[in-house]
Nucleic acid binder design. Structure first.
Lengths: 191, 191
DNA sequence: GCCGGCCTACCTAACGCTCGTTAGGTTGAA
DNA sequence: TTCAACCTAACGAGCGTTAGGTAGGCCGGC
């Protein structure tokens, strides 16, 4: 199923591009550097993607698809909805563990004005996916009403993204943990 | 006081550079575009600053100095410390009002790996200034103990920065307001 | 069973553009 | 006469992108 053309090489390009974009953004994603880390030449990237914009869109698309899949795994493996919410920040913590990177879509949201339209679309979808998951989990946990769920979900998402950004600025993953604890203490996330 | 060399032109460069960097970051700050918006040629920028790195450092420095001054004004004009905290997000709201821009230092924190060291330093100071002000105001409001003030201050700062970023991604200032309201409802900020 | 054609996955080389930066003027005020 | 504040012109490096080539695997037809 799907097109399986050159899967291994295409996937490796997406892997490396994702990591670079998490540290340097769309503007800082350099096709020659990307190619070198993949182990091919820059021109060869055009065998797999028609342009940098398309490549970045594919990166962002796979990014939210993976995030969505990860959240569904979290849902299926964790019985208690409140427990799922407690584990939610852990998905953002992983980026910091990975060489102090941040969420691809946080970075690209900052760069929004300079993003090609197809990339913008995928970046927005990442937020939608997270907010939707948080909404249904908040409702399942009985923390908010269905009516208020979406706004609260957005608040949690924004706060966690902000915490990740701050922790990156100090290259201090313990700061991230401290911020999340504070959100819990303040009542934004369940204790 | 200070060096007053060519004040008007130098200040105009800093003004315009700040606005550009708030929308496009350090990497997206282009000296030719900057010069054009100021009304001079790119080469003339070098009469005022020795390099792009120095220019950006000056921009970031003035940015946190202005922020610090603004917060002090807020302190002196608002009697009730809790009221000051309520008004704090308003300083971030202004960037969004100004053509959907974000905090210069949030953007640059994302770009941290690619920032020249002098710029990094000024960006960090911006956070310090905000956290220090929030700390003392939280204590004055009797919301947290002196011991916990700094961490809570950081949590508020991160959450507000995150809210600003999300609102930018949707070009929706009402989303920012909704997020802040949710922080208040959750107990992160005073009602 | 082997041969020509075709396709995938890469390559080298270069184009045109933009960037930060520099050398070396010009101009008007003090 | 000096100097701050600008200018024109260009350099070299880097960028995304393209043209055109090559090596190897696969496949149907003779």
């Amino acid at each position: 199923m799907d097109s399986q053309t050159g899967t291994s090489s295409r996937d490796k390009i997406l892997d490396v591009a994702t990591k670079i974009a998490q540290a340097h953004g769309y503007g800082g994603l350099n096709l020659r550097t990307l190619a070198e880390e993949v182990g091919i030449k820059a021109a060869s990237l055009y065998h797999h993607f028609p342009s940098k914009a398309d490549l970045a869109a594919a990166v962002a698309k796979r990014y939210w698809e993976d995030a969505a899949a990860g959240l569904e795994v979290l849902s299926s493996r964790t019985q208690d909805p409140a427990d799922r919410l407690r584990r939610f920040p852990g998905t953002f913590r992983k980026s910091l563990e990975n060489d102090n990177r941040i969420c691809l879509c946080s970075f690209m949201t900052a760069e929004f004005d300079d993003l090609p339209d197809p990339v913008k679309k995928e970046v927005e979808t990442f937020t939608d996916v997270n907010v939707a998951w948080l909404s249904k989990t908040l409702v399942a946990a009985g923390i908010v009403s269905t009516k208020d769920a979406k706004k609260r979900a957005h608040a949690i998402f924004a706060a966690v993204a902000g915490a990740q950004l701050m922790a990156r600025g100090r290259s201090d993953i313990k700061l991230f943990d401290a911020l999340i604890k504070n959100y819990q203490a303040a009542g934004l996330l369940p204790l």
